[in-house]
């Protein structure tokens, strides 16, 4: 379980998150939504232990989030930090060497699903294929928590579709919890169980998406237009 207790995060004088408290259910696909600069990426970085809260506490399965939390958290960053001279296979082997729970057989399965070849050089991959490779590396771990920061951003529709299908195919929802930040709400909406809406550094709503549809007769996008534009 992921728990935030009175968490604030400042960058200089700017507040990215303001005294946020919440806990998230397990075994769900959770979408973190909000406008640019609302604190979505900061939230993921805090869970991944890649940023420290200015105050408050973050617990991931009962452990305080720090760099060592990467043992139970798989994190896909918005940027890619691949070595261009690596091949796809080198990159998979490298991840295998870093994480005890990395499953090379699963990585191979996802590679072939994504139509990637181990021998391809990373510097020759298209942006879409680099996006796909990130998915392979993130999902090939047997890890309870998967964080994905804008996995679809800047990719063309076919790549986005293959990434969403890959997600459905390769997550083990009985054992894994997935958090996704995204602007591509329409595409992600059918695979979300829960949404966490962030506005100006505060969590304004945590809601089961099917319940939202039942109660409000609205999808996430309609709901957002209503709530975010009311100011």
């Amino acid at each position: 379980m992921i728990e935030f207790k009175q968490v604030s995060k400042r960058y200089g004088t700017k507040h990215a998150l303001k005294e946020v408290s919440f806990s998230l259910p397990t075994g769900k696909v959770i979408g973190i939504i909000g406008e640019n600069g609302s604190g979505k990426s900061t939230t993921l970085k805090l869970i991944a232990g890649l940023a420290k809260p200015s105050s408050g506490e973050i617990l991931v399965n009962g452990k305080a989030a720090s760099r060592r939390i990467s043992q139970i958290v798989s994190y896909l960053s918005e940027s890619d930090g691949f070595y261009p001279f690596f091949s796809v296979g080198d990159m998979v082997d490298y991840s295998h060497s870093q994480f005890a729970d990395f499953r090379p057989e699963k990585a191979n399965e996802i590679l072939s699903f994504m139509k990637l070849d181990r021998s391809q050089k990373i510097k020759n991959l298209s942006k879409g294929n680099r996006g796909r490779l990130k998915i392979v590396l993130t999902l090939a771990r047997d890890v309870p928590i998967i964080l994905m920061d804008e996995p679809l951003s800047g990719l063309d529709p076919l790549v986005r579709d293959s990434i969403i299908k890959g997600l459905i195919s390769f997550i083990d929802i009985e054992k894994q919890t997935v958090l996704i930040t995204t602007h591509e709400i329409e595409e992600v909406e059918p695979i979300l169980d829960t949404m966490v809406a962030i506005k100006d550094g505060r969590v304004i709503c945590i809601q089961d998406v099917e319940e939202l549809r039942i109660q409000e007769k609205a999808g996430i996008l309609d709901w957002m237009k209503k709530v975010y534009q009311e100011g």
Binding site: G27, K28, V29, I164, K165, I168, S169, I173, P190, I191, L192, D193, E210
Partner: peptide
């Protein structure tokens, strides 16, 4: 459940 999730593009929980 998984096959249906993949073919219809929704979450396995759904």
């Amino acid at each position: 459940v998984r096959e249906m999730a993949i073919s219809s593009g929704v979450n396995p929980n759904t």
